[in-house]
């Protein structure tokens, strides 16, 4: 067996845990991860009883070799990007734990749970007010945006 780097070891552990014991409505595309441990696709279902019930979404996680010290780069991908006041139509998500408040004690699983709860607490589906401008001008990598986090209630 080849020797794994600390980030590979950590990702491997997370993958096992996510396959064995996924949060409700969340599943990881294990075949794809096997090809590249640093790029994950996660399927997420809108929770029942919420505005997103019956919808299916796809999240992409990109990790650097400094993971878990560096946060993962997380975006919605695919044809269905949730319409939500903190999610831009290009899939970028405004969520503090993905940048400023990231901690190495968090994980793919805790990020997924935060996103599920962000979707579930939404009361009205609409895009962020500056969506058009942001999508036109932002960097491809959402971590290169300096986000302001004002509102934790949605």
């Amino acid at each position: 067996m080849t020797c794994l780097s600390p980030s590979e070891r950590r990702l491997q552990k997370e993958l096992m845990s996510l396959i064995k014991d996924p949060p409700p409505g969340v599943s990881v595309d294990a075949d794809q991860v096997e090809q590249n441990l640093f790029l994950w696709t996660i399927h997420m279902e809108g929770a029942s009883g919420t505005l997103y019930e019956g919808e299916r979404f796809q999240l992409q996680f990109k990790f650097s070799n400094k993971y878990p010290f560096d946060s993962p780069e997380v975006t919605f991908t695919g044809s269905n990007i949730p319409v939500h006041p903190h999610i831009y139509s290009n899939g970028h998500i405004c969520l503090s734990i993905l940048t400023d408040d990231w901690s190495p004690a968090l994980s793919v699983q805790s990020v997924c749970l935060s996103i599920v709860s962000m979707l579930s607490s939404c009361k009205e589906k609409h895009r962020p007010p500056d969506n058009a401008f942001y999508v036109k001008t932002c960097n491809k990598n959402p971590k290169k945006t300096k986000w302001w986090y004002h509102d934790d209630s949605v």
């Binding site: 006041p85 405004c94 962020p128 007010p129 500056d130 401008f133 942001y134 986090y149 509102d151 949605v154």
Partner: peptide, 8 residues
């Protein structure tokens, strides 16, 4: 507008 990137 409470949730906007800083470059708005």
């Amino acid at each position: 507008g409470e949730n906007v990137p800083a470059n708005e």
